[in-house]
Simulated scan of single mutants.
Amino acid sequence: MRFIPLVPAALVLMLTAACSQAQPDKTTDSPTSAGVDMPKGGDRRKDKNAAAEIAGLSKVGSLKGKVPESSGLAPAPESGNYFSFGDDGNSPTLYEISGSGQLIRTIDVPATNTDWESLSRDGSGNYYIGDCGNNESTRRNLKIFKFRPDSPKSVGTIAFTYSDQREFPPKKKQRNFDCEASLWHDGQVYLFTKDRGQDRASNVYTVPDQPGTYTAKKVTSLAIPGQVTDAALRADGHRLVLLGRGELFILDGNSWAEILKATPRQISLAGAGQTEGAVFKDDSTLLISTEKGDLYEYKLP
Score class of each variant (00 low, 15 high):
residue 296 Y to L: 05
residue 155 V to W: 08
residue 54 I to N: 00
residue 301 P to S: 07
residue 181 A to L: 01
residue 289 S to R: 13
residue 278 A to L: 11
residue 250 I to K: 00
residue 25 D to F: 15
residue 18 A to C: 15
residue 50 A to Q: 06
residue 60 V to C: 09
residue 98 S to R: 15
residue 156 G to H: 12
residue 193 T to M: 10
residue 210 Q to A: 08
residue 284 S to F: 00
residue 196 R to F: 01
residue 216 A to Q: 09
residue 211 P to S: 05
residue 35 G to D: 12
residue 125 G to S: 03
residue 261 K to E: 09
residue 160 F to R: 05
residue 15 L to I: 07
residue 209 D to L: 14
residue 183 L to D: 07
residue 4 I to M: 02
residue 271 G to R: 03
residue 37 D to F: 10
residue 151 S to H: 03
residue 253 G to T: 12
residue 206 T to H: 13
residue 286 L to S: 11
residue 80 G to C: 09
residue 173 K to P: 11
residue 178 D to S: 09
residue 217 K to R: 12
residue 56 G to W: 01
residue 260 L to V: 14
residue 91 S to T: 14
residue 125 G to N: 01
residue 245 R to F: 04
residue 211 P to H: 03
residue 55 A to T: 05
residue 287 L to P: 00
residue 187 G to L: 06
residue 57 L to N: 04
residue 74 A to D: 03
residue 209 D to A: 14
residue 232 A to S: 08
residue 139 R to A: 12
residue 258 E to I: 07
residue 291 E to S: 15
residue 243 L to P: 12
residue 59 K to L: 08
residue 92 P to V: 09
residue 30 S to W: 03
residue 222 L to S: 05
residue 170 P to A: 10
residue 242 L to V: 15
residue 171 K to T: 07
residue 171 K to Q: 05
residue 169 P to K: 06
residue 246 G to I: 06
residue 74 A to C: 02
residue 10 A to V: 14
residue 238 H to I: 06
residue 84 S to C: 10
residue 288 I to F: 09
residue 134 N to Y: 07
residue 181 A to N: 01
residue 19 C to H: 02
residue 179 C to K: 11
residue 293 G to K: 12
residue 108 D to K: 04
residue 18 A to D: 11
residue 270 A to H: 15
residue 177 F to Q: 01
residue 211 P to A: 08
residue 292 K to D: 04
residue 141 N to S: 02
residue 226 G to I: 00
residue 108 D to T: 03
residue 136 E to A: 00
residue 26 K to M: 11
residue 14 M to F: 06
residue 273 G to C: 13
residue 263 T to E: 09
residue 85 F to C: 06
residue 249 F to L: 04
residue 250 I to Y: 00
residue 88 D to A: 14
residue 294 D to V: 12
residue 88 D to T: 15
residue 296 Y to D: 00
residue 173 K to G: 12
residue 272 A to D: 04
residue 49 N to D: 01
residue 42 G to R: 11
residue 37 D to Y: 07
residue 167 E to Y: 03
residue 262 A to I: 08
residue 93 T to S: 04
residue 79 S to L: 13
residue 137 S to D: 01
residue 149 P to D: 06
residue 102 Q to T: 12
residue 80 G to Q: 03
residue 159 A to R: 01
residue 137 S to G: 04
residue 78 E to I: 14
residue 159 A to W: 02
residue 257 A to R: 15
residue 205 Y to I: 14
residue 110 P to M: 13
residue 295 L to D: 04
residue 176 N to S: 15
residue 86 G to T: 09
residue 121 R to D: 01
residue 21 Q to L: 12
residue 249 F to H: 00
residue 32 T to S: 14
residue 165 Q to K: 09
residue 40 K to D: 02
residue 57 L to M: 00
residue 8 P to S: 04
residue 186 D to A: 06
residue 202 S to D: 05
residue 7 V to S: 09
residue 189 V to L: 11
residue 31 P to K: 07
residue 142 L to K: 04
residue 188 Q to C: 05
residue 5 P to A: 14
residue 282 D to S: 11
residue 132 C to L: 15
residue 128 Y to K: 05
residue 99 G to F: 13
residue 9 A to Q: 02
residue 134 N to H: 11
residue 151 S to F: 07
residue 275 T to P: 13
residue 79 S to E: 11
residue 233 L to C: 07
residue 164 D to N: 04
residue 233 L to A: 12
residue 25 D to T: 13
residue 275 T to G: 13
residue 271 G to V: 00
residue 86 G to E: 10
residue 159 A to T: 01
residue 124 S to T: 02
residue 150 D to L: 15
residue 178 D to F: 03
residue 138 T to C: 05
residue 70 S to F: 13
